[in-house]
Design a protein around this nucleic acid. Structure first.
Lengths: 158, 158
DNA sequence: AAATTATAGTTGACGTGTCAATTAGGAGGT
DNA sequence: ACCTCCTAATTGACACGTCAACTATAATTT
């Protein structure tokens, strides 16, 4: 006996889905707006600056940086170009491998990150951590893990 | 006695925050990829086509459409331009108000939406509804509502 | 009616992201 | 040494989004 199964989400499920996606997007946008207005940094800038700040000598090979923040190389290349124009980073060619390029944090880039970092963390607390109970945060963590696992499972057999 | 309070998120809270944002983004990207590959539609296209499909006479004033899907007028204008080039919609000037423009679904646009609609809903079920328990879905709904409320509260006093 | 103000929509500049093509240098086999 | 293949990074074309400036028409005020 095969069990009968709904194929399409119910109205309520669809509502939650939309809430979920739109809320995540709204939070992302709010954070991005603050970062931009207060420190003239985009979220992309922030990711790059964070990774470089934590790196040995404030410098990383392009491909290593891309892997660290989960970006495609091409995306990073475009972005580094824009950041270089603004003086946040420099590009120097790699000593060991002359194909390579290293991104190096400038003084200006380091300063921008130092200024933005703690306020940014405080924003995350105010917007995400504070409004939720510890149980809710734990539940969100589990939901995210479950959804990711579902995604991965499909990557195998699209 | 004022209570001592952590100002910055803990490592675990930060992890959940990132999981949350990244998972939402990954789901969005997966849905978008399917829509694009199978039906040559972007999520923006889909939103516009959905709104027009549900509208009286398959047509809407530009500003009404923008409000319906929560977009800025300028964004919609650019997007309608691209959709018009591809033959998914037409723009006609508004009879009552000669400043206005109406977006009208073309046959092709209607067909594209019909083709994409149910598969898209099925994707949502497979990626979001199926992996979660009903309790988890309810919890996500509450979390989203809570976070939104927090966002709104700040809009008042930024 | 004329002047002012508000609204509808478009446009251009620019940041951002993806994809496909390209350039250039390393690595391994013969 | 030479050929082939792999990898690093950049580039160009294009879709998408925001912001500010602009055009044109409607609505309101005086």
């Amino acid at each position: 006996m095969s069990q009968r199964r709904r194929v399409y989400p119910s109205a309520e499920e669809l509502r939650v889905w939309r809430e979920f996606i739109e809320t995540a997007e709204a939070l992302r946008a709010e954070l991005a707006g603050r970062l931009q207005e207060d420190f003239a940094l985009s979220p992309g800038d922030y990711s790059v600056l964070l990774a470089l700040s934590e790196a040995e000598g404030n410098r990383l090979r392009s491909s290593v940086l891309a892997a660290a923040i989960g970006w495609e190389r091409s995306r990073l290349s475009h972005h580094l170009g824009r950041m270089e124009r603004r003086g946040l980073i420099r590009r120097v060619e790699c000593a060991a491998d002359s194909r390579g390029a290293e991104a190096v944090l400038t003084e200006e880039g380091a300063g921008a990150f130092r200024a933005a970092s703690l306020p940014h963390l405080r924003e995350i607390r105010e917007l995400f951590v504070d409004p939720l109970t510890p149980e809710q945060i734990a539940a969100v963590g589990e939901v995210a893990t479950t959804l990711r696992a579902g995604l991965e499972r499909r990557r195998g057999r699209p």
